[in-house]
Write a protein that binds this DNA or RNA. Sequence first.
DNA 1: GAGAAATATCACCGACCGGTGACAATTGCC
DNA 2: GGCAATTGTCACCGGTCGGTGATATTTCTC
Lengths: 226, 226
Amino acid sequence: MPNSKPSAKSPAKPAAEAEDRTRDRSRTEEGILNAARSVLVEKGFGGWGVNGIARAAGCDKQLIYRYYGGLDGLAEALGTQIARETEAALAALPAPEVDSYGALVAALIDAQLHVLRSHPVMQRIIAWELSEANALTRAFADARSRALMAWFAQVKGDFTAPPGVDAPAINAVMIAAVQQMVLSSGTIGGFAGMPLAEPADWERLRSAIRRLILAAYDGSGTPTAG
Amino acid sequence: MPNSKPSAKSPAKPAAEAEDRTRDRSRTEEGILNAARSVLVEKGFGGWGVNGIARAAGCDKQLIYRYYGGLDGLAEALGTQIARETEAALAALPAPEVDSYGALVAALIDAQLHVLRSHPVMQRIIAWELSEANALTRAFADARSRALMAWFAQVKGDFTAPPGVDAPAINAVMIAAVQQMVLSSGTIGGFAGMPLAEPADWERLRSAIRRLILAAYDGSGTPTAG
DNA sequence: GAGAAATATCACCGACCGGTGACAATTGCC
DNA sequence: GGCAATTGTCACCGGTCGGTGATATTTCTC
């Protein structure tokens, strides 16, 4: 079938850009979702809107309403996608080989630091949660909190916290510190005079966190010889 | 002229609202600054703009440009005001009576928690710092960081950290945790499954923080008998 | 082929934004 | 009194926002 649709439109676009003009809803949806992520990373949640996302996706914003039901639906889809992939990221982490509850928690907090550092979208979402309290951010926070606790419960196995120690509170404090540090490194480049840019900075942070956790749980903060 | 100008300020408005129509630049400036604070607290930094602030101040937005040179100048004035009052708040805290470096740090972190919890404007500014990296938020963060470190250095007196402990890193971690917890309590109402609403919740957080610090510095996290 | 359904685009709306110039009202100075 | 500087108000601009109805284009079904 010779492409004889428009008589004179044979090689109008010589495909130099490989522009795929075929219509494909699933691909468009994927493009919108990817655009939503990149806009969130680059502009922050303040610049996260239908106009900018459609612009980044290279399509009309009407499609956002048609396929996702507007900004809320798109945010919900983004949230479930994030939840899925973080769940997978946590599940893919090697089970830490430890011999104490404190060492276990230290490994888990360290894993959190690693995952969050490599996930700019989640950093933006956390900043969003800290800035606005609406149904969307609450849903985000709830999902994250539940995933976190489920993962914790699943991976801790037979280990139990020493008696007399409020493990949930201490763990929450340390995760809070990790989040604040990662977020602050992204915007300010450090925190309270402590730089967070070079790998050595992060190693320093990791050892401080490790010392805090081990001391709180196991009683003596003997740093891992080194 | 139908509008028979009230020759004397006859009680056209019976002062039921005590509307003061006298012109006073300094009072207007103060009103604008207060409006800027309340708008920041109630709407967040995303809704912090000349239109809303002028509306809240009950004056024309033109005055914001005339008296403060626009949003940037207003933010700068707000920043110096905040810096002054937090400096005063920290200086007004009673010097902690402690007998160890760990206890000192625990008291200072606790003071930070107290000050930040009672200062919603600063909470908003911190959330701002975590969300956007511009000249303004960097200035905010720098000022806060310097004030924090100066206060720390001034109040620590003769105490010195135990050898082999990275005190700046550990202190930064704990302050980061405090900030994240306070900010999260304001929007989500808790953190990682730990509620932060009732006074008992905050007491629980305080003791967890105290245990972490004491254990890291003094080697044994004996909770304050109680 | 024809028609329906799905997909994508366009044009437009009202609202709000930051910013500015022109103008009215008050105050202070002489 | 007269007059100028200060203080406050109003109207407007270009731009972006979220949202929607109408319409063009492609694809599927028969």
